[in-house]
């Protein structure tokens, strides 16, 4: 399972501002895990399910496209 950049319509790119959770950390469904910034707002991305973040794919300061995986999540 993956945590992805939220659906943001025709927004082309967002910047990862900061990770609120690190690799190896357990998260609950709906828990805030990462902040990404688009031109209009900052989005606090929530985990779609409970699990452990096994790998962060896009680090702080890097860019990503809507729908792109930001991290891998392993269900419990």
């Amino acid at each position: 399972m993956e945590i992805t950049v939220p659906a943001l319509g025709e927004v082309e790119e967002v910047t990862v501002l900061q990770w609120l959770k690190g690799e190896g950390e357990e998260v609950e469904a709906g828990e805030a895990v990462v902040e990404v910034e688009a031109d209009k707002a900052v989005f606090v991305v929530e985990s779609p399910a409970a699990g452990r973040i096994t790998r962060i794919l896009i680090g702080a300061g890097d860019r990503a496209r809507p729908g792109q995986p930001l991290a891998e999540l392993q269900p419990p």
């Binding site: 945590i3 992805t4 950049v5 939220p6 659906a7 910047t15 709906g30 805030a32 895990v33 990462v34 902040e35 910034e37 031109d39 209009k40 707002a41 900052v42 989005f43 606090v44 991305v45 929530e46 985990s47 779609p48 729908g67 930001l70």
Partner: peptide
């Protein structure tokens, strides 16, 4: 990005396709 966003322009968003 034009400048730092104020704290009230933070939006919660699900990290999965809708």
């Amino acid at each position: 990005m034009e400048r730092l966003k104020p704290p009230w322009l933070r939006v919660r968003a699900p990290g999965a396709p809708l």
